[in-house]
Design a binder for these strands. Structure first.
Lengths: 281, 281
DNA sequence: GTTCCGCATGAATCGATAG
DNA sequence: ACTATCGATTCATGCGGAA
C-alpha cells in the first residue's frame, strides 16, 4: 500500500477548510502556546487564546471521522504568578462545540527547562488532552503495552528510579522494533502517564516534543493505512513518525522555513522508501 | 515546644466556622470526589459539586494566613465516558472568590490500581492544585530537594575518587566534611512532578494517599511549629504526618468511625511522645 | 571501537529596567 | 499604571571530540 503525505503551506485557519469531512482518524498537534512563537503566529495573548483556537477546533471536528480522536498537547503559561486559565476555558468551550473531553494524559518531561524562582518549581508536566466526536472511538491498547514479566520486574526493582523511567520510555518507543527482545515477557496495559525527554540539540531544527510522543498516540488511536493530521506541523515530527509506521499524513505549517525543511526532509525520506508523497502548497 | 493537635467530629461546612481568622499556614486535603463516599457526605453529584465546595473554600480563605497555602488534591471523575468538568469550574469559581490559582502539581502514582477498560487506561496521575491568598506566600524549597540526574552523578562519582585519594593523604577530619559537601552537590531543586507510590501497607483502612504526599507539601509550605489543617481528615494521614514532623494540626471528620480511629491512633502516639493533644468533638 | 567528558541548548519564569 | 524587553537562574540531554 502506498503511504501518502500531504503538506500545506499556510495558516491552518484557512487551509483546514480544504480538507474533506470525516477524513482523518487522528489529529495530534501541539499548537503554539500562549505568548510563544511570536515570529510565526504572532504570540497569541492568553486572553485571546480561546477565541483564536475555537474556529480551528470547529474545523477539526468537521474533518475528523466519527471514530477518530483529537489529541491536543498543551500547558498553561504562568501569568503574573498564576497559572492561566485559558486551557480550562478552552476545554469548556470545546465541549459546547460538541466535543467530548474523553481523557487527560500526562506527559512527564524529564528534561524540563531550567531555572529557579523563589515561589515556583520548574514545570515538568504537559497534558495531552483527548477529545472525541463519539464515545465509540477506535483505540488499540495492545499497540502500546509495556512488558511486566518476571525478568523486567526483578530487573526494574534493582534499578534506580531514573533508570526505571528511562526503561519505560524505551519500551514505548521501541515496542515495534524490538518486539523480538520482549518475547516471553508478560505484557501489561499502559497507564495515562508517559515519561519522555525532549530531544535537546538537533542540528537543523528544534522539535517541541520527541518522536516517542506522537508515536505513542498514533499507535494507540490508528492502524496502518489510517490518516493522521497535524495542523501545526512545525518541524514535522508527527508526520515523519506517521510515515515511518505507515500512516497517511496531512500537515499544515505557516512558517515557510519550517515548511521547506519538512518538504526536503520528506522528499529524501520518501525517495528512499519508494513511497508516494503529494507535496502541496 | 508542644505540638498541639485538634480533632473535630462533624461536617466541615459547620466546624470550619469555629476556627479563627488567619490561623493556618497550610491546608492540605483530599475531599470526597464527586459521587464518592456516598455514605458520609452523601455522594455529591458532579453537577452540584462546585456549589457544594465553594462555601468550604470561602471558609478556608478566611482561616488561612496571608502567607499560607491551600493544596487541594482532586481528580476529575469519569462520567458517561467523559472527564467531568467540575474541577475546571471549581478553579474558575475559586478565583472569583479571591483565590490565586498558583500552580498545578502532578502526582504520578507509580503503582496505581490495576484494571482495564475498552477505551481508557488506568489513571496513574493526580493533580494537587495550589491556591494562595497572596503572591507572597511562604515556600521552603530546600526542604524537598531531590537527587540529581545521571550526568551529575557520574561526574561526581569520578570527582569523589580523586578527592578520596587526596583526602586520604591528609588528615582524617576533612573526609567527613567533603562527604557532606558532595551530598549537597548531588541534590537539585524539585520540579512540579512528584513520583510517589500509592500506599497499600496499612491494615485497617485504605488511605486516599500515601504519607509522602502530605509530607512533601507540609515540608514545602510550612516550618516546625506552623499549623496544618485538613477539613476532610479521613484516616488522618495528613495529621499524623504533621505531628511526626512537628507541626500543629487541625482535623475535621464527619464519619464517627474514622474520627474515633484517628483519635485512638493519636492518643497512643501522643502518649508515647509526651506531647499535648487537644481532642475536641 | 569504546568510554568519557565538555558544551550548547532549551513550550520557563521572575524581577528589574525601560518606554 | 501598564506593557515590553532582557538578564539571571538552572539541569537533563545528546552530540562531538578526546583519551
Amino acid at each position: 500500500m502506498e503511504i501518502r503525505t500531504e503538506l500545506y503551506l499556510g495558516d491552518c485557519r484557512e487551509k483546514l477548510h480544504l480538507l474533506p469531512d470525516e477524513s482523518v482518524d487522528l489529529s495530534f498537534t501541539s499548537p503554539p502556546y500562549a505568548d510563544r512563537r511570536r515570529n510565526t503566529y504572532g504570540g497569541i495573548h492568553p486572553s485571546d487564546y480561546v477565541e483564536w483556537f475555537l474556529p480551528i477546533a470547529a474545523q477539526l471536528l468537521r474533518i475528523l471521522k466519527p471514530t477518530g480522536t483529537f489529541v491536543l498537547n498543551i500547558r498553561e503559561k504562568v501569568v503574573n504568578g498564576e497559572r492561566s486559565t485559558y486551557v480550562l476555558e478552552l476545554i469548556l468551550n470545546m465541549r459546547r462545540q460538541g466535543w467530548l473531553w474523553t481523557e487527560e494524559f500526562i506527559w512527564h518531561k524529564k528534561n524540563c527547562s531550567p531555572g529557579k524562582w523563589p515561589n515556583r518549581f520548574r514545570n515538568a508536566g504537559e497534558r495531552p488532552l483527548q477529545f472525541n466526536k463519539s464515545r465509540k472511538f477506535h483505540m488499540y491498547q495492545e499497540a502500546v503495552m509495556v512488558p511486566m514479566g518476571d525478568w523486567a520486574k526483578t530487573r526494574l526493582r534493582n534499578l534506580s528510579e531514573t533508570d526505571k523511567i528511562r526503561d519505560n520510555s524505551k519500551v514505548g518507543s521501541g515496542f515495534g522494533k524490538n518486539i523480538s527482545s520482549w518475547l516471553g515477557c508478560e505484557m501489561a496495559y499502559s497507564t495515562n502517564v508517559l515519561h519522555l525527554a525532549t530531544e535537546c540539540s538537533h542540528k537543523n531544527h528544534r522539535a517541541a516534543f520527541p518522536e516517542e510522543l506522537p508515536e505513542w498516540f498514533i499507535k494507540l488511536f490508528t492502524r496502518e493505512g489510517d490518516t493522521v493530521l497535524d495542523p501545526f506541523m512545525g518541524s514535522g515530527t508527527t508526520l515523519i513518525v506517521a510515515d515511518r509506521i505507515r500512516r497517511h499524513a496531512v500537515g499544515i505549517e505557516i512558517a515557510p522555513e519550517y515548511f521547506e525543511m519538512v518538504k526536503k526532509r520528506f522528499a529524501g525520506y520518501q525517495c528512499d522508501r519508494k513511497t508516494y508523497g503529494a507535496i502541496l502548497s
